[in-house]
Amino acid sequence: MVTGQNRTKTLLEVNNLSVSYQRQNEFNFLKPRIIEAVRDVNLTVRKGETVGIVGQSGSGKTSFLMTILGFVKPTAGEILLQGETVSSPTRQALGLIRKHIQPVFQDPDGSLNPHKRIELAIADALPARIRRNKSICHEQVLQHLQLTGLGPEHLNHFPHQLSGGQKQRVCIARALAREPGLLLLDEPFSAQDLLVQFLLIELLAELKKRLRMTYLIIAHDLRMMRVLADRIAVMKNGKFVEINTVEKLFREPQHAYTKELLASGSGLKTNFHNSADEQPK
């Protein structure tokens, strides 16, 4: 059981969470196909901790994240944020989620309003009192943008004028501008070259130290997780088959699937593959 003292340190608690989608059944329209994307998942994230989720494509990682954000309703189980239930979409619950959690979605191309310039997109994440003062707002937007390695020349661009990797960084800058306690990152570096990956990893580590930020990071890249995460959850077919600290997981993996992942060296392959997407400038 969680003691009172421990409870304050626990930021996010997920108990027996299940998520399923209904899909049209091509053969029998009266009986929709049920896809169980997340099955009976438990996870506790403490403040200041970095938890990684790895697993192959379709294992339910994004569904898990969308449920935490309140965009998908769980079929069973509960989610607690700072000890309060947020898994039923009440006004209060959603308010709490919006206040403390920011996501960076997997698809950077779809995550930015095509009709909003970068400066305004990031400004929208700033509090109203800052937005009211033009010069302060401009300065803060620029600061956040520069944290992610982009510069003032991008402020006036529309999203379609940026590369996928640049858009991804704008999304990270925007999420950070909101100063969330918990940042959910869905494949955050997938379109970045190695140099930018290091920059971003350093940025996250720095913020973690300075602001005690908490991260939940999804990746199918185990090698990057080794650098970033304190604990790793391995997901397969909607289930967490193993949750362990990074050292333990790499030293003595418990589950066969984890061993498989480690053996396949997916990390190396993914990094190599992705670095070709965007050449360092």
């Binding site: 919006r98 206040k99 996501p103 779809g110 995550s111 309003n113 095509p114 929208d124």
Partner: peptide
Amino acid sequence: LYVKSAVALG
């Protein structure tokens, strides 16, 4: 997703 992002930003 850009509308979801906006919603998430509050």
